[in-house]
């Protein structure tokens, strides 16, 4: 037995580490940092959610006719930015499913981290991939017929970030509810993102659509986000459209966090 014992240093379990109670903000920061660490260590992992949008950009944009006030790209790119946010943030719950399966989520649930912080910290981190992905898309299209209006893009980034926080929170809520069954998560996620995407007018304008389709598009918050992004990315700041985008994104964010926190609190 003695011969088997590792000659490694033994823990001095007598030295107590000073721990202190943490609050909601500290906890949220802890969760946020933990989520971001692997992404920052491997930024390429954030490109995964972009594959589909970039393919759309490459294959769809050349098909678009030029619109009367500017290039097709100018019209198309803001939609692709929102689409990327939708794809990335809606998939993010899958990471939680993996953690529920492996046991690391259980460890966080036993730690003193508060339930709301476990959700809010995760949802907030969605901002980072969204900003990174937006920067990549803009870097790709700016050499072509796309005019970069920095002011508008920055305001647009705030709106799309809020939208991503909300979507991310909803995605985590879905993952929490689905527990370890990832097929439930993916089925619901796929069922929801395509209607959201198609009804938002990202790929095709819904101007000539029948009434019922227009109605569905009108109640889709993503529609307003896309419209606001289109104006902002062209360097315009129409108050009603920008406010509409902000309100829609903020509603999604508030709803997401509310539903997410409730689901997380109820999970145990």
């Amino acid at each position: 037995m003695t011969t088997l014992t590792v000659p490694a240093a033994q823990v001095r379990h007598t030295t107590r580490v000073p721990s202190r109670p943490t609050g909601f903000l500290t906890d949220t920061w802890t969760v946020l940092l933990r989520e971001l660490t692997p992404k920052l260590r491997q930024p390429a992992s954030m490109l995964f959610a972009m594959m589909q949008p970039l393919v759309f950009l490459g294959l769809f944009a050349p098909l678009l006719p030029d619109v009367e006030n500017g290039s097709a790209l100018q019209w198309f790119v803001p939609g692709i930015v929102v689409m990327t946010a939708l794809m990335g943030a809606s998939m993010t719950g899958a990471d939680l499913t993996a953690e529920i399966r492996s046991g690391s989520h259980e460890r966080l649930l036993v730690s003193p981290l508060s339930r709301p912080s476990l959700l809010v910290g995760r949802a907030l981190k969605e901002v980072v991939p969204v900003l990174f992905q937006t920067a990549v898309i803009l870097a790709v299209v700016t050499p072509f017929s796309f005019d970069l209006h920095l002011g508008g893009v920055l305001v647009g980034a705030v709106i799309v970030s809020l939208f991503a926080i909300g979507l991310g929170a909803l995605s985590f809520a879905l993952a929490t509810a689905a527990k370890e069954q990832d097929w439930v998560f993916w089925t619901v996620q796929q069922m929801l993102i395509f209607p959201l995407l198609l009804l938002s007018g990202v790929l095709l304008p819904l101007d000539g659509a029948p009434g019922w389709l227009r109605f569905l598009s009108d109640i889709n918050p993503m529609t307003y986000v896309v419209e606001a992004e289109r104006a902002l990315f062209s360097g315009e700041f129409p108050a009603d459209v920008v406010t509409g985008g902000f309100v829609a994104a903020a509603v999604v964010a508030a709803l997401g966090v509310l539903v997410g926190v409730r689901t997380m609190e109820r999970s145990s």
Binding site: S19, T22, T26, T30, R34, L108, S111
Partner: peptide, 15 residues
């Protein structure tokens, strides 16, 4: 995650 990062986040969780 990396092991050290997880240990650090556990430490943060405990303040």
């Amino acid at each position: 995650q990396r092991g050290r990062d997880e240990l650090m986040s556990q430490a943060r969780a405990h303040g």
